[in-house]
């Protein structure tokens, strides 16, 4: 069942002065997240993955399109958001230390959203719920009295997750939520998120540049490049039979300790989003670009629910003879 439906949204940041070009960070993105499932969004920096997430909680301007979560709809340009929506979508950010108020003990950080979204609770009840939530993310009662600077990065991220989940959201957005953590701690948080998802039937929008982590956590995956979704489908489709040359390049670039050779190289860097190339946006770096790619943007064609926006999808993904 579809929980979140995003329809053709744009996020445009106006320039600071008249000389500055506006930046279209997200350009016509549509996607859906099913209840209790994880959609992973991958892409390099500047691809618009964070802007997309921030637009869903009102931290970035929603310039065009609409999205719905359950019965609530938000359309571009609307000033007032349904109150329930602010509760039902919660977010965990990349840097766990700067996301927490240094002057509050852990339990108070987690209790704060309850004061807004659960006004019927008294202070004692809020504290009780906060402690229960902290326990659920693996922080014991004696730790709940401590302040953020007394915690490690992994523990701070646990507090941030508890704060997001204490109001019982239906969708949790994780924006690079494990990227700043040490390798050995990252696995703990990944496991915690997977466990909480099963327990709470939570939908997760998991945004990361790390394809291996996204592979581990997501049932569906969308690949973004310069503000657009270039490929989306189930994890098995996108990772097993990638249909877009950019996805293939990303997968080939991952360093893996089991592979004793250097990762494959994609030339060049992501062009500036103020002035994206016409036609297919990936054509300036694509090893398979032809004249058609410069002329028209490729439509996102679906095969068995596996979308890819590439003019040459059919000929490039056809299995080699023999």
């Amino acid at each position: 069942m579809t929980l979140l439906g995003v329809e053709d949204i744009d996020v445009v940041y106006p320039g600071r002065s008249r000389k500055d070009m506006p930046v279209r960070a997200v350009d016509g993105v549509s996607l859906t997240v099913d209840a209790g499932q994880t959609l992973g969004i991958v892409g390099e920096s500047g691809c618009g993955k964070s802007s997309l997430a921030r637009a869903l909680i009102g931290l970035a301007p929603l310039s065009r399109g609409e999205f719905r979560l359950g019965d609530s709809i938000v359309r571009a340009g609307e000033r007032r958001w349904p109150r329930r929506l602010r509760e039902e979508i919660q977010m965990v950010f990349q840097d766990p230390v700067s996301a927490l108020d240094p002057r509050m003990p852990a339990w108070q950080i987690v209790a704060e959203p309850l004061a807004i979204h659960r006004p019927e609770l008294n202070a004692g009840q809020r504290r009780e719920r906060s402690m229960a939530m902290l326990d659920r993310v693996g922080l014991t009662a004696d730790l709940a009295m401590r302040y953020p600077h007394q915690f490690s990065g992994g523990q701070c991220q646990r507090i941030a997750i508890a704060r997001a989940l204490v109001v019982e959201p239906r969708l949790l957005i994780c924006d690079e939520a494990v990227s700043a953590l040490d390798v050995s701690v990252q696995a703990q948080i990944v496991n915690l998120l997977a466990g909480l998802q099963d327990e709470l039937d939570l939908a997760i929008l998991f945004i990361s540049h790390d394809l291996a982590v996204v592979h581990h956590l997501s049932q569906r995956v969308a690949v973004m490049y310069l503000g657009q979704v270039v490929e989306s489908g189930t994890r098995e489709q996108v990772y097993g039979l990638p249909a877009h040359p950019y996805t293939r390049a990303l997968l080939a670039a991952i360093p893996d300790p089991a592979r004793l050779e250097l990762p494959a190289v994609l030339d060049g860097e992501v062009p500036s989003p103020t002035d994206p190339p016409g036609g297919c946006r990936f054509r300036t770096r694509c090893p398979h670009a032809i004249a058609l790619c410069a002329k028209s943007p490729p439509p996102a064609v679906a095969v068995n629910g596996h979308h890819a926006a590439c003019h040459r999808r059919d000929e490039l993904t056809r299995p080699a003879p023999g």
Binding site: S152, A187, Q188, A212, D256
Partner: peptide, 22 residues
Amino acid sequence: VPRLGRDPGRAPPARLQAITGS
């Protein structure tokens, strides 16, 4: 560390083998 391995189309293990503590 989650790994894609040789067959990235395959489903990963349900949980990673994390090192406890920090």
